Simulated assay, not measured.
Amino acid sequence: MFPPESGLTALRNFAALRGQLRVSFGPACNIGCWFCHNEGDVPPRTTREDRTQQPRRRALCAEHYLAVIGGLTKAGLRRVYFTGGEPLLSKLARPVLEGVGVFAAPDVSFSLITNGILVPRNLAWLRDTAIGKVKVSLHYLSDESFQEIAKTRLPVSAVLAGIDAARDAFERVELNTLLQRQSEHEILSILVYALERRLPIQFIELVDTDFNAAGQSAAVSADGLMAHLRTLTGQERVEVIGVGQGRRVFTVDGIEVEVIHRQLGRHHVGQCGACPVRPQCVEGFWALRLDHSGGLQPCLLREDLRLDVTPLLAADDPSATVAAATARHLASFTEGTL
């Protein structure tokens, strides 16, 4: 049984502010980007360089994922993103992505975040899922920058081929690009690449967190990019509604170019009001993150807020049980009792 409407208030407030559910199938990845935070787990590159640092053990199967996703979408969440590592590297990707179709609704969206490399070989089954948007990370446009950033021997053409494949199969394909020294010389070329293919793109300034502290010298300001965008268009707006970082949105020939700009700040939902670390916060509560070991975490910076849902999945109605527990958890956070 779901709790009464009043018991779901905190969860539904989060959903109304465009909060999202990010579902990680696990830490495995076919590349190793230096800035990856792996949704709060040990990043793939860290494990490659130091085998003593291992991510959490897997606790969820496909049925578990579907129970949690079903419960939270029924309870009000409307935006679900599938992440990794690289989600298409997981054997759970296909049964889960095919299975979420039963939760599809006009106001519920399912998005895949990928590096694009494995899209072509999975396209035959991907095109028949409920995935409505594919978001491809494109932080590079040459073999040299790709290999430096992602610690790989693959050519960047493997990523570009994945983007082309996604464009052929999905109505909406978007790109996201982290602004960094290693590919600063390619930023405008990446912009041209996106505009020529009429792909919405998001440029992101590096946010200072514990996960990327060693790479802060690689951070690049978005000021130069925004100055260039203003020579291309007069259509610019600022979005600070909902949750997450504020952003500037430029419309160039009908294509949206978003810039996640640190100077606009982060926007927190009511749940953050009593948080003891809010004055120092650079993350904010903008996503509930479900990881492969059964943790549901509202903030990467506070491990103490991580809810273990694995015991709840043995209930007679696991979907409703998880949704009710999540709602109680967020209500406690709102009230400052966690």
Rank of each mutant, 00 (worst) to 15 (best):
R94Y: 12
P95H: 02
V96T: 10
L97P: 04
E98H: 10
E98F: 13
E98S: 14
G99P: 02
G99D: 06
G101K: 02
V102W: 06
F103D: 09
A105C: 12
D107Y: 15
F110A: 02
S111E: 12
L112V: 00
I113P: 11
N115C: 11
L118Y: 10
V119H: 02
V119Y: 01
P120A: 08
P120G: 08
R121Q: 14
L126M: 09
L126S: 06
L126P: 12
R127A: 13
D128E: 15
D128H: 13
T129C: 08
A130L: 03
A130R: 01
A130V: 06
G132S: 10
G132A: 08
G132D: 03
K133W: 06
K133S: 10
K133L: 12
V134G: 09
K135M: 09
K135H: 12
K135T: 12
S137V: 05
H139D: 08
Y140K: 07
S142M: 07
S142N: 02
D143A: 04
S145F: 07
E148Y: 14
E148A: 15
A150C: 15
K151N: 14
R153L: 13
R153C: 10
P155D: 07
V156H: 13
V156G: 10
V156P: 03
L160I: 07
G162L: 02
G162Q: 03
I163P: 04
D164G: 11
D164C: 10
A166P: 03
A166E: 04
E171S: 14
E171K: 09
R172M: 13
E174H: 00
E174R: 06
N176V: 02
N176C: 10
L178C: 05
L179G: 00
Q182A: 15
S183Y: 01
H185C: 10
H185M: 03
I187T: 13
L188D: 08
S189V: 05
S189M: 04
L191I: 04
L191Y: 06
L191Q: 00
V192P: 11
Y193T: 01
A194S: 00
R197L: 02
R197Y: 08
R198T: 10
L199T: 04
P200R: 09
P200L: 09
I201L: 09
I201W: 08
I201K: 01
Q202Y: 11
Q202L: 11
Q202R: 15
Q202W: 11
I204N: 01
I204P: 05
E205F: 06
E205G: 11
V207R: 07
D208K: 12
T209H: 15
T209R: 07
D210E: 14
F211C: 12
F211M: 11
N212R: 06
